[in-house]
């Protein structure tokens, strides 16, 4: 059994809802989820990029994953809606607080730029309306070479039938150009009742024109490569990694329990 991931759970301030959302995801068998903070790029009246809320403040106890004995892993992700090239700032310090970085381009030019130059992990495909442009092979191949993934959210398709049509049209267009590679399928919903199990998602992705293997990769191994890509984004050429050493060297919780026992015995 492979590890399943859902890299798009929108952030809600409602703690109770977030808790049930995480519990449902764990029950369905997702071992890693990412809480998504949405940021709309604005040129005037600069809106601050939201700071991720520490996980300890959101939930007290992480639920155990179905079929495993480990608790669910929760990451932070930032999605920027880009409607102008200046909205995405390269190497901004604010982006460092997030584990995963995603952009949602709105025009063809920006889509091209996102695929070829932007230093991101995920490019979101709009599924709630008809895309104003066609996918071209050059940027998509460029994205594949750089290891950037395309994301499709299925929650809109569940909600009503017009959205379902748009989702299917846009995804079919993408899969046709992309041959089903480099696609991740995630939920993108904050309602627990709109989540689906990983095997249902793979079967749903086959409706999008992906093969069985590609569909399963869409919820498991492609997500894993997103995480690895995100790791290398923080490093220099994926080799050197800098960590800020904490200045105060006082121990937080004291020595671990096993050590304590040893000293008391001797």
């Amino acid at each position: 059994m492979s590890l399943f991931m859902d890299l798009n759970l929108p952030f809600t301030a409602d703690k109770k809802r977030l808790k049930t959302l995480l519990e449902t995801a764990a029950h369905l068998g997702f071992s890693t989820v990412a809480i998504n903070y949405f940021h709309e790029g604005q040129s005037k009246g600069k809106k601050e990029i939201p700071k991720p809320t520490p996980l300890a403040q959101l939930v007290d106890e992480l639920p155990i994953v179905q079929g495993k004995s480990r608790p669910i892993k929760v990451l932070n992700r930032l999605t920027i809606l880009v409607s102008d090239a200046s909205h995405f700032r390269h190497n901004a310090a604010e982006y460092r607080a997030y584990d995963i970085l995603a952009v949602q381009p709105t025009t063809e030019k920006l889509f091209h730029a996102a695929c070829m130059t932007f230093d991101v992990d995920i490019i979101c495909i709009t599924v709630t309306e008809r895309l104003p442009f066609f996918f071209k092979r050059a940027p998509i191949n460029g994205a594949r070479e750089r290891g950037v993934m395309f994301e499709v959210c299925y929650a809109a398709a569940i909600r009503d039938s017009t959205m379902r049509r748009y989702t299917l049209t846009n995804t079919l267009a993408l899969v046709e150009r992309n041959k089903g590679k480099n696609i991740i399928v995630s939920s993108g919903t904050d309602k627990p009742l709109e989540l689906r199990g990983p095997y249902d998602i793979t079967n749903l992705a086959q409706l999008f024109g992906m093969s069985e293997v590609e569909a399963k990769d869409g919820v498991s191994s492609n997500c894993r490569s997103v995480l690895l890509h995100a790791e290398t984004r923080k490093t220099a050429c994926g080799i050197i990694y800098t960590v800020k050493t904490p200045n105060d060297s006082q121990p937080k919780d004291g020595p671990p329990l096993a050590k304590k026992q040893k000293t008391s015995a001797s």
């Binding site: 569940i158 009742l193 989540l195 199990g197 249902d200 079967n203 409706l207």
Partner: peptide, 27 residues
């Protein structure tokens, strides 16, 4: 497979005029 691919689109079950919102996950 055809039937399975339609299962994610179920959002509610109607019983005696009452709507029970639910979802199915295949095990």
């Amino acid at each position: 497979r055809l039937i399975w691919s339609a299962l994610p689109f179920i959002t509610s079950v109607e019983r005696k005029g009452r709507r029970i919102s639910c979802f199915l996950s295949c095990l």
